[in-house]
Simulated assay, not measured.
Amino acid sequence: MTTLGAVFRPQVPPERLRAVARLADDVGLEELWLWEDCFLEGGISTAAAALAWTERVRVGVGLLPVPLRNVAVTAMEAATLYRLFPGRAVLGVGHGVQDWMGQVGARAESPLTLLREHLVALRALLRGERVTTDGRYVNLDDVALDWPPPADAGIPVFAGGTGPRTLRLTGEAADGTILTASTSPDGVRRARGLIDEGRAAAGRTEPHPVVVYLLAATGPDAVARLRAELAAEGLESVPDLGVAGDAGAVAKAVQRLAEAGADSVILQPTGDEPDPEAFVRFTAEEVRPLVP
């Protein structure tokens, strides 16, 4: 079955998160995803709050920009969330937006090398291993977590990617991949192929879930809002991106992504979505019953 979720976008003030998260829990939303976009809201702080305010909804962070974070800090925070809220936290890491990384003096000369080193060290630390590594960007000297997740927890580390080399890397070094809303169904198929190339190169055979964001709008002005957001992102000429309409139209768009290889489709409201709570309710109560 395709997992269906929704994004709480960081353009919404953080004080709105409590109501949205509690509603997501109440209406049976499977997953609520958060973003750590510069310079809006912190991914770990919002995830911890959302998890504490709820009982069952899974909370994802997609994604934490690795240039901003020492891998030991990422591991400590991830392990804490996983132990406090077993089975309910999902964390993804990635390059981050390079212009933003430049603004804070954290832009890496080789983002791919940094992400690879971060993923390898992060997954090892979360497995409870003691790590010593002297990489180009990641340097650890006899580091181990005192409170790692339980050894049998099977904690997945997701990574975001768009380009071919990064997608191959996610297949090789991550446990799942996050694709942006600029990914069409054909793009999902291509991404799956690249991810599988990376998995094969690393000899990995375990399942590798793919999460895809789907830009969605509903209501009387849905088409105009969707078009405006795609135009602002320079994506208005890309076919099969986003969906505007009722639950039936959105469910069909979700199914197209699922048929292309998405395991989870996360509905991403437009940045000017007027009612985030109503969007969550729409996702859980109207779209979910129509998605196999």
Results as ranks from 00 to 15, higher is better:
residue 12 V to E: 08
residue 171 G to C: 02
residue 87 G to W: 11
residue 248 G to D: 11
residue 103 Q to Y: 11
residue 120 V to H: 13
residue 138 V to I: 14
residue 261 G to R: 08
residue 246 D to I: 00
residue 97 V to M: 12
residue 130 R to E: 14
residue 53 W to A: 09
residue 163 G to H: 11
residue 44 I to W: 15
residue 198 G to Y: 02
residue 79 A to G: 15
residue 34 L to T: 04
residue 10 P to S: 09
residue 56 R to S: 13
residue 73 V to Y: 14
residue 218 T to Y: 08
residue 208 H to D: 09
residue 28 G to V: 01
residue 85 F to Y: 15
residue 178 I to F: 14
residue 276 P to W: 03
residue 243 V to E: 08
residue 140 L to N: 08
residue 104 V to S: 04
residue 60 G to C: 00
residue 250 V to E: 03
residue 224 A to Q: 15
residue 44 I to S: 05
residue 160 G to E: 11
residue 79 A to S: 15
residue 153 A to F: 06
residue 136 R to V: 12
residue 61 V to Y: 02
residue 66 V to Q: 09
residue 90 V to G: 06
residue 161 G to I: 01
residue 224 A to E: 15
residue 242 G to S: 07
residue 261 G to C: 08
residue 159 A to G: 01
residue 120 V to C: 07
residue 230 L to R: 12
residue 103 Q to I: 00
residue 267 L to E: 08
residue 145 L to P: 13
residue 146 D to A: 11
residue 37 D to C: 07
residue 89 A to S: 14
residue 153 A to M: 07
residue 50 A to F: 04
residue 265 V to N: 13
residue 206 E to D: 15
residue 208 H to P: 15
residue 3 T to E: 15
residue 223 V to N: 06
residue 77 E to C: 05
residue 123 R to I: 04
residue 234 G to R: 06
residue 101 M to T: 12
residue 49 A to S: 14
residue 157 V to N: 11
residue 42 G to M: 03
residue 9 R to M: 09
residue 217 A to V: 01
residue 270 T to N: 12
residue 31 E to P: 00
residue 129 E to L: 00
residue 115 L to C: 03
residue 266 I to A: 12
residue 164 P to K: 02
residue 257 L to C: 13
residue 233 E to D: 10
residue 40 L to A: 15
